[in-house]
Write a protein that binds this DNA or RNA. Structure first.
Lengths: 228, 228
DNA sequence: GAGTGGTCTAGACCACCTC
DNA sequence: AGGTGGTCTAGACCACTCT
């Protein structure tokens, strides 16, 4: 018996999978489906909206709803705070603040953060540990102009967690890449120079000003996993 | 004037950002908010549901709705077909089938695909090109038992696109990692052995049986980007 | 112009969970 | 046990866009 919107989503997916509704095909209107399943149109709408959000369907007013021909698989990643990530593995998280200075970031960073050249901001270098072993090397530029004062002792509080709790976050973007370990990363993570490292870069903004730019270099073996 | 669910979502976000509702705080019930904004409860529900899906709010029946204390940033990645990815950069996509044989995959692959040891399946090795230059090295194990016959000439049709069009896709998972280039990848991509490569691994299933396992080794410089 | 999806309403019942 | 979110309904109007 088909009743809830999840049932309807499942049934629509089934028909797509058995090629009842092949890729590119137009499927019945919400009204027709509502009549067929004996539910309200809003219920069908909810189911179809979810599938469209997942990239399985493409919907346009008047044009109707089609099965996506080349479905863009949308993968959802959870980007947790590092401490949670370590603890989720059943390991103990720790970190050491390696450096804290004020200075002018290199040009690529100033331009990506949209800062005037020569602006002095805060640099934090941190090594995160899992069960005492190097897990992630974190390099972070922080824009003190948008931070509440007084700043904490970042040797005691992880910058990430302090920011989450004290700064009104707005938007940002994340990028992933692979790079060979530089001399500094190699030394801190205890690997050979040039070792392939998984890199995460994050940029965070308030409505107007940049808050922080972070580069994480993960120890070898790190995998970012997702379910589709 | 606040009316639609997007307005309500924006207003709730604003109150969170200005710390009207700080992290961890309980916010008013749907009913209260509906009364305040002068809309139906379903409209408030829609707005709050979206925010909960984005990881900004945490909702539990009876317990109410809280501002997430450590917001798990949910990043959504679009995983397009390689051809679309190349064309989106304004480059011309091409590919060369390097090898097509039947054989027994190595143990890690059989176990991850859940195949009986010794099962012979299809192996395809493909090099994808962007403007004629190496873009991605693709190694793919295909389970012919679940594929429609006849199989196409994979030298003419990209395996990925043929699968999308002809096989009822079901579920799968994706993983990302960084690895040093092996001898084969180095030769095919034209880089030195050990060069850091961005690796994508995908496993796809029907309801019961494994369809395909793919390992993509991206040429240096590849970045996976997302907006939060 | 007209058909389709997008959204909203007012009310209702239910499932779940904390108290 | 009662409050809260989760969902459904029947109807309505609107926005978009294809023809």
């Amino acid at each position: 018996m088909i009743s809830g919107w999840e049932d309807i989503r499942a049934e629509v997916l089934r028909r797509i999978r058995v090629r009842d509704w092949p890729p590119g095909a137009l499927i019945p209107t919400e009204e027709d489906l509502a009549a067929e399943f004996g539910v309200a149109r809003a219920t069908v709408n909810r189911a179809l909206r979810e599938l469209a959000g997942a990239g399985v369907l493409e919907r346009r007013r008047k044009a109707g709803t089609r099965v996506a021909a080349l479905p863009v698989r949308k993968a959802t990643l959870d980007i947790p705070v590092i401490r949670q990530e370590v603890e989720a593995r059943g390991q103990v998280h720790g970190f050491r603040l390696l450096e804290r200075v004020e200075g002018v970031p290199p040009v690529p960073v100033t331009s990506r953060m949209g800062l005037a050249p020569g602006t002095r901001i805060l640099w934090l270098e941190t090594l995160h540990l899992a069960d005492g072993r190097p897990f992630v090397h974190e390099g972070r530029w922080l824009n003190p102009a948008v931070l509440p004062v007084p700043l904490p002792d970042f040797a005691a509080v992880s910058a990430n967690e302090w920011l989450v709790a004290h700064v009104a976050y707005a938007t940002g973007d994340i990028a992933f890449a692979a790079e060979g370990a530089g001399p500094r990363e190699a030394a801190v993570l205890g690997v050979a120079e040039g070792t392939a490292l998984f890199i995460t870069e994050r940029m965070t903004w308030t409505a107007e000003a940049p808050i922080t730019y972070v580069r994480l270099a993960h120890a070898p073996g790190y995998r970012l996993q997702t379910m589709v």
